[in-house]
């Protein structure tokens, strides 16, 4: 026993090293799992405030473009609102019409050049946010909520190699998985579009609505390259993202009121999602 203790004491630096590295590795692996509410990320009060200050300084340099974007978005929304008002003459199911609720939030921190990019916003559980909710920007889909604290939330950006959302070619209705390849912040890929589909350059990709996280028809991007290798079962599709993540200032979190109903129905019929 004494010799064992002596042995450990002699190599205490190495054992401490081993312990710390295993702790770190565990943290890295644990953090890769999607959706969690935890304390040590940028939604934590102190970190979020520091990042908010940093973002506040940076914002002064892009106020003009932010204003232009917001004004344009306002105009579009007003037009849409008017159109919908005229369409809905006799609402039948108010729950379905009010299926989605929107919460506007300001971006506190954002990165675009790592492999796993996250966005911190200034709305949290107090405003009704919960992990798993979809987030859109002025031009298209942005990501999902990963974790929330009382007043802040961390989003897992579309520019994150772990993020997958269900996308659809608007023209042909074929659906696949939108997943970032980690290289360029303006481009992402669409996977699992079968051979018999005929995507062409210029086709619009929208969200499919199958997961009930995103509403159907939210803009994702436009196809810029579509290749079919002779032996491959699926197309290689590269699309340009509609949302420019480099200058993201305001986002909208979508609260889907029917998601739990849809998910529980699917769990009963299909089983727990993996």
């Amino acid at each position: 026993m004494e010799r064992l203790i002596n042995f450990i004491y002699e190599y205490r630096a190495f054992f401490t090293f081993l312990f710390l590295e295993l702790l770190c590795a565990w943290l890295v692996i644990e953090n890769n799992q999607y959706q969690s509410t935890r304390y040590f990320n940028s939604s934590n009060q102190v970190a979020a405030q520091v990042l908010g200050f940093s973002q506040g300084v940076r914002e002064y340099f892009s106020l003009r473009t932010i204003n232009e974007d917001l004004a344009r978005e306002n105009a579009e929304l007003r037009r849409d609102l008017e159109r919908t008002r005229q369409q809905i003459s006799t609402p039948t199911d108010t729950a379905r019409i009010n299926q989605f609720d929107f919460v506007s939030a300001k971006v506190m921190a954002n990165s675009t050049n790592l492999y796993k990019n996250f966005i911190t916003i200034d709305k949290g559980s107090v405003d009704g946010l919960a992990p798993g909710m979809a987030v859109i920007g002025d031009a298209g889909a942005v990501g999902k909520v990963k974790s929330v604290s009382e007043r802040y939330a961390v989003l897992i950006s579309l520019l994150n190699v772990d993020q997958q959302i269900s996308g659809q070619i608007k023209r042909t209705s074929h659906f696949g998985t939108v997943r970032w390849d980690g290289a360029n912040m303006r481009y992402t890929t669409l996977q699992f579009i079968p051979r018999h589909a005929l995507p062409v350059v210029g086709d619009t990709i929208v969200t499919s609505g199958y997961s009930a996280v995103f509403p159907q028809g939210i803009m994702v991007g436009v196809i810029r390259e579509a290749n079919l290798k002779p032996e491959a079962p699926f197309w290689d599709i590269r699309l340009e993202l509609a949302q420019d993540f480099g200058r993201l200032a305001f986002v909208e979190v979508i609260k889907s009121k029917l998601k739990s109903e849809k998910d529980s129905l699917e769990t009963i019929t299909i089983g727990e999602p993996k």
Binding site: A13, F17, L20, E21, C24, L27, S42, N44, L114
Partner: peptide, 20 residues
């Protein structure tokens, strides 16, 4: 640094290695 980069454990792992 990890707390601010949202990369739990990543920078700690690399930094402990060079510290050792």
């Amino acid at each position: 640094v990890d707390v601010f980069y949202d990369s739990m454990g990543l920078h700690a792992l690399a930094t402990v290695l060079i510290a050792y």
